[in-house]
Nucleic acid binder design. Structure first.
Lengths: 284, 284
DNA sequence: CATGGATGTCCCATACCGCGGAACGGCCAT
DNA sequence: ATGGCCGTTCCGCGGTATGGGACATCCATG
């Protein structure tokens, strides 16, 4: 048989194909048939069928007895949960995400950088009527989101350049930063002020404030953000959100054992802190 | 080479081995070396190494450059998140879990039944000092937990028997139900009263109240529970917890489109049919 | 009702590719 | 030095995954 265009630096073919099949499932297509999968990954039906059979016996996929179509199975969920559970930041951060949410009622995200992209690892949904769509486990570009930019800002110059090289700076809105130099300068500003803002750079009407979380070694391991609808925001609320994410990031970092004596000083504690009062029973 | 003791009903060996390797990772051992994995799954180092290499190129595992050890990768987390995101019950249930938590401050679990075991698909941690250890994505036996029992109680007799057959009724404490007949009777009681209690049947000092969640077809798709430390409980609080989970389960079910005005009583002891068959489908 | 197309499933001979033994180099504690 | 354990690489052999094909089923169509 002819060698497929792929086939490069080796790797076990059957395993690669099995993974390709698994990855074909997505939120948009949570259920797929043998033939659909075959077309999607470019394999013969029988090959796909055999691979699916094997995956089914491991529980990684399950077949609907009625429709004959396949879905991902719970063991994958178990493994995936393990991945983040080893990220202790998620456990430590949870209460503070809730605290932020109680204070402002907006959508709160916890995210990390992976392969130059943002991965949402936890989230609390807005109680407001207008919400932004996002999902734990999903990815988002880094150069145009608050979480992404505050995480990018902590990378060494070389790493940032590599990310730009790999992912590019795709334009989403008129505000999106698409010039490498501009992004580098912007990152410098973010480092200096200790937080990042996204003002409609990914989606026109969405804005967002984010701050970085450090672990005990001082390394940035995650970031926290508040997402809100631009129309509902003014100067004061932006400052409030900035203050909220900075405080939360600081507390979470401390919870991870970080001793950030160095940073202390540039906390804008004087300014916006009291704004966060309005505790507990904030209805909506 | 001799055929290994396993190798029975076919299946692609390389894929099965890859899955076995992935499943060797657990919360207790989030990082493993080639040799450790080789011993764990009974394979030659070089075989494991090659499999890991392939898995690494797909991102399912990542290798720590320093220690050379392997961890699970974020793409697995993405896939796993997809599994539950398709379970809309999780999204719908979240606010109600939070509501329960605000009302009592205890640990709240959302769980489903899979392969005769409970899988926790969401959780809110207790704010109290004494907590129970659990984790989203983990499994627990069904016959001795509140969530498990209330889910088992909805199974047809044959399915319950099959679960008992497969999983057994392992004893964890002096209170654990280990007799099939006793469990069947207990399930009948649970159906009748509309909730399940676990009074130290899994862990001595832990007790728990649970209620079942129905989807729009009337099928039980999940259950919600409150877990608490037995010492802190009295009759009144147990009743309160029962009331909380029942109300939440009802609201979540409604959120899933269930119209259960007629429920509760018409749950037949002979749960042999899919609970409440509903005439949503007019034709056909 | 017949027909054609698409589907899921099963089987099988072939050649291809994964297998594991072995060897190598690096890294420790002995 | 030295032995043990590690991760990694290489290679020839033989098992095994492959995909074509056949078949039953199920629809929508003629």
């Amino acid at each position: 048989m002819r060698v497929r265009e792929a086939a490069k630096a080796s790797g076990i073919r059957a395993v690669e194909r099995a993974v390709a099949i698994l990855r074909t499932f997505s939120s948009g297509t949570p259920e797929l048939s043998v033939s659909e999968l075959g077309r999607a990954v470019g394999l013969h039906k029988s090959t796909v069928h055999r691979l699916l059979g094997t995956l089914e016996r491991t529980g990684f996929v399950v077949q609907d007895p009625g429709t004959k179509r396949y879905r991902l199975g719970l063991p994958l969920f178990e493994l995936g949960s393990m991945v983040v559970s080893t990220l202790e930041v998620r456990r430590v951060a949870r209460p503070y995400l809730e605290e932020i949410h109680r204070a402002c009622g907006e959508t709160v995200h916890l995210g990390i950088l992976d392969e130059g992209e943002v991965v949402y690892i936890d989230k609390i949904e807005s109680t407001r009527r207008v919400r932004m769509y996002s999902q734990v486990g999903r990815r988002a570009p880094a150069h145009c989101t608050g979480l992404g930019k505050v995480l990018l800002a902590q990378l060494p110059d070389a790493s940032l350049a590599e990310v730009i090289e790999r992912r590019g700076l795709r334009r989403f809105t008129s505000k999106t930063i698409t010039s490498p130099k501009e992004l580098r300068d912007h990152c410098a500003l973010i480092r200096q002020q200790g937080y990042a803002l996204d003002t409609g750079e990914h989606e026109e009407l969405i804005q967002c404030a984010a701050a970085a979380i450090h672990d005990h070694t001082g390394k940035v391991v995650a970031a926290v953000s508040i997402t809100s609808v631009a129309a509902a925001m003014d100067q004061h609320r932006v400052a409030e959100h900035v203050s909220l994410v900075q405080q939360a990031a600081r507390k979470i970092s401390e919870g991870l054992g970080a001793t950030l004596h160095i940073r202390q000083k540039d906390l804008p504690g004087s300014g916006a802190r009291p704004a966060t009062a309005r505790p507990l029973t904030s209805g909506r």
